[in-house]
């Protein structure tokens, strides 16, 4: 059963069972409205429990046994997973973007995480897992989503500007000059959600991290200052990551001679080869 400590209720297994009962409402809706989602609801609920409890267990162990190489190894695993997930979210793009996505997330993730934990939060030791891992998680999660949006936008925008790109290259534009308007619009598209969440913070929504800190018993004013750092760090990271990713990838749609590879010149199999998780997803769909 739950115990009260300093006004904060700690959650025991009994409380978790009660929370799980909330999903009965979702199951009831699925049954009554014939949504046909019973399997998904059960699977998602079980996954939620397993994944987050496993994460808590692993983090508890890591916090107790932290060494600099273990923390870096975990960061590397997080970066690789983020790159993999981002690559499945980018459709209509040339194949072979994964190395560029990994590199963008790697550079942004490491430099931004260490800058925030070292210069602003002054974590001791510098690899203090209790701070470094959650901060890296926020940076990578947001950069990953923003990068997927930006890359999707980049290649869609270039496709819609195919005539303009041909006219520009015919006049002697480099691939970069011909792609520039699309590069700009993609970075803009990646930045908009972050700026919107900054504008809404505190007025429309209490940001998730701040909510968590307040629920865990922290002083709201302290939590607010923490949240400001986090939102600034996220907008800087997403922008840096998008600029890297877009600059590292736009050239894939241009031939070595500098002309744009139009839809008609592409391998129709393009993109179908991409992504371990996509293949994995397809297989599990066909089994269902």
């Amino acid at each position: 059963m739950g115990t009260m400590a300093g006004g904060v209720t700690s959650i025991g297994s009994g409380e978790l069972v009660i929370a799980a009962l909330l999903m009965l409402a979702v199951g009831f809706a699925s049954y009554r409205m014939k949504l046909g989602m019973a399997k998904d609801i059960v699977a998602s609920t079980i996954r939620l429990f397993l994944q987050l409890l496993a994460l808590g267990f692993v983090l508890r162990w890591v916090f107790g046994n932290q060494t600099w190489w273990l923390v870096l190894l975990i960061l590397l695993f997080m970066i690789a997973s983020a790159a993999q997930i981002a690559s499945t979210r980018v459709t209509k793009a040339p194949s072979g973007l994964e190395p560029a996505m990994f590199l963008s997330l790697f550079i942004t993730g490491l430099t931004m995480t260490l800058a925030v934990t070292g210069l602003i939060l002054r974590v001791q030791p510098w690899y203090g897992a209790r701070v470094v891992i959650p901060i890296a998680g926020m940076i990578l999660g947001n950069s990953m989503s923003a990068m997927a949006v930006a890359l999707d936008r980049l290649f869609a925008d270039m496709d819609s500007r195919v005539d303009e790109i041909l006219a520009l290259t015919a006049l002697g534009a480099t691939a970069l000059e011909a792609a520039q308007p699309s590069i700009r619009s993609s970075i803009r598209a990646g930045l908009i959600p972050t700026l919107a969440s900054m504008a809404a913070a505190g007025v429309v929504s209490i940001p998730g991290m701040m909510t968590g800190q307040i629920l865990a018993g922290a002083d709201p004013f302290g939590a607010a200052k923490y949240q400001i750092v986090v939102l600034l760090m996220i907008s800087a990271s997403t922008t840096v990551c998008n600029m890297l990713a877009v600059r590292l990838t736009y050239r894939k749609r241009f031939a070595p001679e500098g002309f744009f590879i139009e839809a008609g010149m592409r391998d129709p199999e393009e993109g179908r080869r991409r992504g371990f998780w996509r293949r994995f997803g397809k297989r599990s769909n066909s089994e269902a």
Binding site: D163, L166, A167, T169, A170, L171, G172, E257, G258
Partner: peptide, 14 residues
Amino acid sequence: PISWRLTVLLVPQK
């Protein structure tokens, strides 16, 4: 290629 296109200039259909 770029110097080439400065001399041999295509005016596209569209």
